[in-house]
């Protein structure tokens, strides 16, 4: 018997899909929010298509961030890279103080308008939570397990892939989850530099004083964020449970 929370999420997903397939159904709900002649449903592009572009941007940026961040975390926790560990910690701290808008704005002169600066900003911003969590995961492994692995004659490489990474995986996934949720919201700001994301809908609403547009764009992102967050959390729990067995 699925719990109430699961049912609610399923309902949210269905409403979202219904909104993409039959936006006209929702018109009466949004109509009171706009002036008499203004459209209540976003009409300057296909919402489903924009959502897919939005998700693609977030996915590409997070994938790149995860690969780089985890590799870096592995590097600084090896003997050869140990010198970089303290510095990388303070860099992560400093990096997190950079506001996303500033990162985005500063990326424009180098990469021009469009999707590129958004990808760069999301990538840089996504690095930090993943790196921090990967570092935590790799540095707080139970000493007894590591000792046993060494005693069993595993090489450093075997220890990394068979013991350390699998044990750290749930914590790394938590970092990826944080990063995805931040990126989903931050990607909307990318539309201020002409990236094609759901931010387009919100900005169109702000510019034409159309609250229905703002609400649509915002709620689609929020529902996506909640659903993806919960799905990843479920995955983490499943993995953590397996690790304990």
């Amino acid at each position: 018997m699925p719990s109430l929370a699961t049912l609610l999420r399923l309902a949210a997903l269905l409403v979202l899909l219904a909104f993409f397939l039959q936006p006209a159904w929702f018109e009466p709900l949004l109509r009171p929010l706009v002036q008499a002649n203004a459209p209540a449903i976003y009409d300057r592009g296909n919402l489903f298509w924009l959502t897919m572009l939005h998700l693609r941007t977030v996915f590409v940026a997070t994938l790149a961030a995860a690969l780089v961040a985890v590799s870096l975390a592995i590097l600084v926790t090896r003997e050869a890279g140990a010198e970089f560990l303290p510095l990388s910690r303070s860099l992560v701290n400093i990096g997190q103080t950079f506001p996303p808008v500033a990162v985005l704005a500063l990326a424009v002169p180098i990469f021009g308008f469009g999707e590129k600066p958004t990808l760069i900003a999301l990538f840089l911003y996504g690095l930090l939570p993943i790196f921090e969590n990967a570092l935590t995961g790799l540095t707080t492994l139970p000493p007894a397990v590591m000792e046993a692995a060494r005693g069993a004659g595993m090489t450093e490489r075997q220890r990394l892939f068979k013991i350390e990474l699998p044990l750290a995986l749930p914590v790394i996934l938590t970092g990826i989850r944080l990063s995805v949720v931040i990126s989903l919201a931050t990607a909307t700001i990318g539309s201020t530099v002409a990236a094609r994301t759901l931010g387009e809908v919100i900005i169109a609403g702000l510019q034409s004083n159309n609250l229905a547009f703002v609400l649509q764009g915002g709620l689609i992102v929020a529902v996506l964020a909640v659903l993806i967050h919960d799905a990843l959390q479920g995955l983490e729990r499943a993995l953590a449970g397996r690790a304990h067995v």
């Binding site: 929010l33 949720v181 989903l184 919201a185 931050t186 909307t188 700001i189 759901l198 931010g199 919100i202 900005i203 609403g205 702000l206 609250l211 703002v214 609400l215 764009g217 915002g218 709620l219 992102v221 929020a222 964020a225 909640v226 967050h229």
Partner: peptide, 17 residues
């Protein structure tokens, strides 16, 4: 927590009404 998932751009806009 749910409030945090609303993109800032949208929350700023939604509050106008």
């Amino acid at each position: 927590n749910a409030i945090q998932t609303i993109p800032s751009l949208a929350l700023f806009g939604i509050l106008i009404a």
